[in-house]
């Protein structure tokens, strides 16, 4: 796992992917910070975080699009799958590397919070809530992206499908509102990423929400392992 983790990190910075992701993230957060906090003269950063979800929807597919599809395309999976590394080790190595890049991106939000604190007294509980929520949301999105990447050999297809899948997850609560059947609507809104996420932006640490994102993450990583396993047996 360690070897794969280190190689992935290296790959993010020897290919443009890592830079594109960070640039998108920093540019987006800079712009939204400027618009919502600086211009408005508000110490409330929640709206910046909420707007940043749109950046996530675009940036995370770029971060994860090549994780597994490219291995298959370049036939380098032949080297990974014939080495003494478990499939879980392989998938976790890739996930953790992508997540570390993501942390580097989110860390910038903390810088903005410190900037704000120089002028006003921000609500640290809300800021930490936002950051934690953002981390969890991102982890779930990354694992969805990795899962989608394991389904195709084409990076671009992988990115587009990931984007669609994440958008779906994001819109689940709106979809739920349209479903006439009450129980189905409840189930769908129970799976809504946004509803779960909103709790954090208020500074509320609801354990069930934390567990929701962690399980979403685990489910998609598990599915990725299954896809890799299945391919060997086809």
């Amino acid at each position: 796992m360690g070897a794969i983790f280190r190689r992935e990190l290296l790959a993010y910075f020897t290919t443009p992917i890592g830079y594109i992701f960070l640039a998108l993230f920093y540019a987006g957060s800079g712009l939204f910070f400027n618009l919502t906090a600086l211009r408005a003269g508000s110490a409330d950063m929640t709206s910046m975080f909420t707007l940043m979800i749109y950046v996530l929807l675009v940036a995370i597919p770029i971060l994860t699009m090549r994780t597994i599809s490219e291995e298959k395309n370049q036939k380098t999976d032949q080297c990974l799958l014939t080495s003494p590394v478990s499939l879980w080790g392989l998938v976790m190595g890739k996930f953790l590397a992508a997540f570390l890049i993501y942390i580097l991106a989110v860390a910038m939000m903390l810088v903005y919070a410190i900037v704000v604190s120089a002028f006003a007294k921000p609500d640290w509980l809300v800021i930490i809530g936002n950051i934690v929520g953002f981390m969890l949301l991102g982890a779930a999105f990354i694992s969805i992206g990795i899962f989608v990447s394991s389904l195709t050999e084409n990076q671009i297809v992988s990115a587009i499908i990931s984007f669609a899948a994440m958008l779906m997850c994001y819109l689940l609560s709106s979809i739920a509102a349209l479903v006439p059947v009450q129980w189905l609507s409840d189930v769908i809104s129970g799976l809504s990423f946004v509803d779960r996420y909103t709790g954090f932006t208020l500074g509320l640490f609801d354990l069930s929400n934390v567990l929701f994102f962690i399980s979403a993450c685990a489910v998609f990583l598990f599915l990725t392992v299954r896809v890799l396993e299945k391919r060997r047996w086809s």
């Binding site: 360690g2 070897a3 794969i4 190689r7 790959a11 020897t14 370049q74 032949q78 014939t82 003494p84």
Partner: peptide, 30 residues
């Protein structure tokens, strides 16, 4: 798998790595 060294039909190389980085990665991987 620890007992096997495998050269597949198409060498499984990462085009963006140097030979040194690649062999070190394989060393860690194995």
């Amino acid at each position: 798998k620890k007992e096997i060294g495998y050269l597949p039909e198409l060498p499984p190389l990462y085009p963006d790595m140097t030979v040194k980085e690649y062999l070190r990665f394989i060393y860690d991987l194995k």
